[in-house]
Computed example of a mutant assay.
Amino acid sequence: MSANPHVLVVDDEPDLAELYASWLRDEYTVETAHDGPSALEQFDETVDVVLLDRRMPGVSGDEVLEQIRNRGTDCSVAMITAVDPDFDILELGFDAYLTKPVGETALKDVIDRLLRRSDYTDTLQTFFSKLSKREALMAEKPQFQLDADERYQRLEAEIETLRQQSESHLAELDGEDFEALFYRLDS
């Protein structure tokens, strides 16, 4: 995630997209798009969060979401829509679902939660990668060689730092976020 998170607001109602953007500009880099093709044109790897209207004429939010996911980025997507959720949402790859009307506080809260989840996921993936390296070395090298190697000692220090960061991130997530995160990691 970038130092100043990048949010793309996509809604076919320009006034609503601009209202959301005005609420967010003090804290985030914000772009707006008013249809699916424009959203896909503006979307790139720098976008951290997409706020996506589900029902738009032409290319729907569902289609935009599918194309975003097909690009393989780790961006979070919140569907913001007047459509009440039904079982069809089980097939969609969004990270949060908000039903309109959405207020400023709710909008900022969902973005903050999604950014925290992203931080936690990145930290956790790095942590597990380092653990795998340690396990491989431990299976092949005697302990005295591991203890004497500076690179291994750095690895151990990195693992401890990542463990602490993971615990810190985990403490920030509430029960709902924690559960949603593990569903996302499991998919």
Rank of each mutant, 00 (worst) to 15 (best):
R116S: 03
E91P: 00
E63F: 04
R116K: 05
L92M: 14
Y97G: 04
Y97E: 06
M56C: 12
Q42H: 11
K108P: 03
L114T: 01
Q67N: 05
H34R: 08
T105A: 13
E41C: 10
A78T: 05
L115Y: 03
D95I: 11
R116E: 04
V102I: 02
M79R: 04
V64W: 01
L92T: 09
G61P: 02
L65R: 00
Q42E: 13
G36F: 03
G103C: 10
D44L: 11
M56W: 11
V83F: 15
V50H: 00
D84S: 14
E63G: 03
L52D: 00
I80M: 07
R113C: 03
K100Y: 07
E63M: 05
V77S: 04
E45T: 13
E45S: 13
A39I: 06
V59T: 10
G72P: 01
K108H: 14
L98C: 01
F87V: 15
A39G: 06
P85T: 07
D95H: 13
L92I: 07
R116A: 02
R54C: 12
G36W: 00
E66D: 12
T105F: 11
L40P: 01
R69F: 07
L107T: 01
F94Y: 12
Q42A: 15
V64P: 01
G103V: 12
V59C: 08
R54Y: 14
A78M: 06
V110H: 01
E45R: 09
D88P: 02
D74I: 11
C75I: 14
G61F: 03
S38Y: 04
I89H: 05
E45L: 10
P37L: 08
T73W: 06
K100Q: 10
A39F: 05
S118F: 02
D112K: 15
G58C: 12
D95V: 09
F43C: 03
S76W: 08
L115T: 01
